[in-house]
Amino acid sequence: MLIIIGFLVVIASVVGGYLGAHGKLAVLWQPYEVVIIGGAALGAFLVGTPMKVVKDTLKATLGVFKGPQYKRQDYLDVLSLIYELLNKARREGFMALEDHVERPAESPIFANYPKVQADHHLVDFITDCLRLMIGSNIEPHELEPLLELELDKHHAEALAPSQVLTKVADGLPGFGIVAAVLGIVVTMGSIGGDIVEVGGHVAAALVGTFLGILLGYGFVGPLAAALEARADQDSRVFEAVKTALLACLRGYNPKIALEFARKTLPTEVRPAFADFEQHLKTVK
């Protein structure tokens, strides 16, 4: 919602200021300038972007308007899931988690948290970590760099859409200049004719520069920044899971391990200590 409000503020400020200076709105309607700028930007985007990133960018752009993937209750569910798994491992041994790790879609523990279960990236991360803890005598200092490597890879993939949109935003003013230059070419070809027609061509050329700059700095650039912020927010849950599992591997009991994880969460989604403690009493 905040993104839509921001875009509306940009439009209202630019158009309102223009109209306040007695500008004519119809002059800004230059569809061929839009075709040149938008088409060139889209083509450059497709040339320089792998197909997977193209699809991820479309998905992320639609998703950013919905807000962060994980809300406060979702973080609580993730922590509760990890607590259930670690508590079962503490009581029955890590081998008791083998069926849950190998078949999370059929696990009654994962089934208690359907949104978490539906996020295959997060489920894969959790089960891969637990698989290492079950099937080997790996030490915390050996597991930590492996988890960091996995998180870096996941974060890099999540940031790819924002990075390619940033490049598009950087290129839009240049494409605006291309449209303006082509408009001047048209203008030069009409010199000697009706002065009103010549003036219209000059105005159209200037609108090309205006649109390129406005789209780059007023829309695509901020959208890329929003995608980057969304990727950073969505990565926090992976950091919390990593912290809890490493704390468990270092010998802390599940409640203390989850307290380590709780501390990694941003304040706006972090459950209060007393509330979290009370919630864990309801978890098996």
Rank of each mutant, 00 (worst) to 15 (best):
A229H: 10
V123H: 02
I191Q: 08
E144K: 15
P173T: 04
G16T: 07
L206G: 06
F175H: 00
L151P: 02
A203H: 04
T243V: 12
D119H: 14
V207P: 05
K153P: 00
I134V: 12
F45H: 05
A96V: 12
E84Q: 13
R131C: 03
I213L: 13
M1D: 09
F7N: 08
T282Y: 08
H154V: 02
D194Q: 07
Y217P: 00
V78S: 03
P104W: 08
F7D: 09
S107P: 12
V181C: 06
R250V: 09
R131V: 01
I184P: 02
W29E: 07
A169E: 04
P161I: 01
A229S: 10
E92M: 08
R131Q: 13
V181T: 09
I126R: 08
F175D: 00
K88L: 15
G135P: 01
V196L: 12
Y75H: 14
L19N: 12
L8S: 13
G208L: 07
G43A: 11
H121L: 13
A105V: 05
L151W: 00
P254I: 09
G63E: 12
T187E: 01
A240H: 04
L246A: 10
D152A: 14
L223D: 08
L165S: 04
M188T: 10
K59R: 15
F94K: 10
Y75I: 01
L42V: 15
G6T: 06
R230D: 09
L182E: 01
L214P: 06
D119M: 11
A40M: 14
E148T: 12
